[in-house]
């Protein structure tokens, strides 16, 4: 059984004549250790899909299941616990708490889970060191570069040992070099640490780091591509594809 799967997942914003269908009967599944990129033109429903997968928003129709449990039937508190233990988030704007240091930010999910502060720090420090931030533990977000901030955010996403990491345009706010670093890091997360990673992006070069690409258009899955690591320019192939779909 796959880690996360959706059945006819549908999200409609508004009602009556102004109703907008953001997601239209989406069926997908992702396995543990798999790195999936979701691509598509603006407004295709990428972010909505991610929010529904992460239990941040509720679907209009259809369902999302994680480990076989349907999110639709969960209460807010149970959803909160699920997010805390099973899902890690990475956002475009990092969303670090500005008044907390790198290590405190990274430790947040386990601190919220009631882990002893010393242990929480210990675990956060381990992840930050793995991501090359060992000398930045006590810096505040405003003392870090964008790439460093995003690495803190990824450490935060992993500190509670979740099965699933959701990344919404994680490189959207970074320069090319930092973007590549972050994308490589996310691949490492799925391969080395065995997490399922679902990443929304519209950058073909970044999407090329994934194992599988899901193309969305007007709320529907229009194409799925498995990437071969061996052959040449995946990024160019993806760029061509997105251009075709966009048209």
């Amino acid at each position: 059984m796959s880690l996360i799967q959706t059945e006819n997942l549908t999200k409609i914003y508004g009602c009556g004549e102004t109703a907008v269908t953001a997601l239209d009967h989406v069926n997908m599944q992702v396995n543990a250790g798999e790195f999936v990129a979701v691509m598509g033109p603006s407004g295709c429903g990428k972010s909505t899909l991610l929010h529904l997968l992460g239990g941040l928003d509720r679907s209009t129709e259809g369902k999302v299941s994680i480990d076989g449990t349907s999110l639709a039937e969960m209460k807010d508190n149970d959803l909160t616990k699920l997010r805390r233990k099973r899902i890690g988030f990475v956002f475009q704007f990092y969303n670090l708490i500005p008044v907390l240091t790198a290590i405190e930010n990274a430790a947040l999910p386990v601190t919220l889970d009631g882990v002893r502060p010393a242990e929480a720090r210990q675990r956060a420090a381990e992840w930050l060191e793995r991501f090359g931030l060992g000398d930045r533990l006590n810096n505040r977000p405003d003392q870090l570069s964008g790439g460093q901030q995003q690495r803190v955010a990824i450490a935060r996403a992993l500190v509670a040992e979740p099965a699933l990491v959701l990344a919404d345009e994680p490189t959207g706010n970074l320069d090319t070099k930092a973007s590549d670093e972050i994308a490589a890091l996310l691949r490492q997360v799925s391969k080395e640490y065995g997490r399922a990673v679902i990443m929304v992006t519209h950058n073909p070069r970044i999407a090329a780091y994934a194992d599988r690409i899901v193309f969305l258009k007007d709320g529907k899955i229009v194409d799925e591509t498995l990437l071969e690591r061996k052959n040449g320019d995946n990024a160019k192939m993806l760029a061509d594809k997105i251009k075709r779909i966009g048209d």
Binding site: K81, R83, L112
Partner: peptide, 16 residues
């Protein structure tokens, strides 16, 4: 709002 939303996304309950 952003910070609070973030905390909620990370698993902070309403009570927290």
């Amino acid at each position: 709002r952003r910070d609070i939303g973030m905390l909620r996304a990370l698993g902070a309950s309403r009570g927290t």
